[in-house]
């Protein structure tokens, strides 16, 4: 049977991808970030997942404003890196896992999560930067990826409670899949950042770290955080952190934090990373 072993929370700042792609990862500004992820990379290389369910958001790349799916699950064989205005990132094509993604879609819909289903889409920095941070620059990504895109651009995004419940349903679906697969769930985005308006650049280190604490100590507190609190305390774009609650929902009640990294700044953003294993 398939099994979820662990969850990873990580920011997905586009400038981090650009720094890696243009050979700037060793520069003093970026080096602390790549160094800070070193232990997570080593951990993931040891865990060797077969599949990563990658929760992220599209940034007006594959989806526009004509149709805004709240949750969209990819069931394609592969996903091309997107051109976000400066050409596609020079990273490997992202390979899907057809059987597990189809099973997930069917299971989640019968479990009353009415997902949008995606057969073709390009994937932007929201998906590829977490892969780069967690895997470096391999010739091929070392696992299959099932993208789960969440709307956090058009207000309102789904609630934290709904995200957590979706995570729970993902766990159930994975555990009912009849192939022996090792699965890790990534929740991406955040942490504090505001990219627009006169308040751009807001960072709330204390709030972010309480959120990281809550992932293992009291996820039910996090689930109740209203949207206005994310926006007020962590910047309007900090609301991306609801996606981390899908990852947390997909884990067991009993978990342990394996590693945490927090760094300001990554361009406009507080870069956060956490690795959480099921006990």
């Amino acid at each position: 049977m398939a099994k979820i072993l662990a969850g990873v929370g990580t920011s997905h700042v586009p400038a981090i991808g650009a720094a890696l792609d243009t050979g700037k990862a060793g520069e003093p500004y970026w080096k602390p970030i790549f160094d800070g992820y070193q232990r997570s990379r080593e951990w993931l290389a040891k865990v060797k997942p077969d599949v990563v369910i990658l929760v992220y958001n599209d940034h007006g790349t594959a989806f526009a404003l004509d149709v805004v799916p709240t949750f969209a699950l990819g069931i394609a064989a592969e996903y091309q890196p997107a051109d976000e205005g400066w050409g596609p990132r020079p990273v490997p094509v992202v390979k899907g896992h057809l059987e597990l993604s189809r099973h997930l879609a069917e299971s989640l819909i019968f479990d009353e999560f009415d997902l949008a289903i995606v057969n073709e889409m390009a994937v932007d920095h929201g998906l590829t930067v977490p892969l780069s941070l967690m895997c470096g620059q391999p010739a091929e990504w070392p696992f299959k990826v099932i993208p789960l895109a969440v709307n956090v651009v058009q207000y309102p995004p789904p609630t934290g409670k709904r995200c957590f419940a979706l995570g729970r349903a993902i766990r159930k679906a994975v555990e009912n899949f009849d192939q022996d697969l090792r699965v890790v769930v990534f929740g991406t985005g955040g942490m504090s950042h505001q990219l627009h308006g006169e308040r751009a650049g807001l960072i709330n280190r204390e709030w972010d770290n309480q959120f990281l604490d809550g992932l293992t100590q009291d996820p039910q507190r996090l689930v109740k955080i209203p949207h206005v609190e994310y926006m007020r305390e962590t910047g309007a774009e900090g609301i991306e952190m609801v996606m981390w609650l899908i990852m947390r929902g997909a884990l067991n009640d009993n978990v342990k934090e394996v590693y945490r990294f927090y760094h300001v700044p990554g361009s406009n953003t507080a870069v956060g990373n956490i690795v959480i294993e099921n006990k």
């Binding site: 207000y155 751009a200 206005v228």
Partner: peptide
């Protein structure tokens, strides 16, 4: 809206969209 009093912030709600 509850977010109207956040300074320097333009929440991308349906009206703005």
């Amino acid at each position: 809206r509850d977010y109207d009093d956040i300074p320097g912030t333009y929440v991308f709600d349906y009206e703005r969209a």
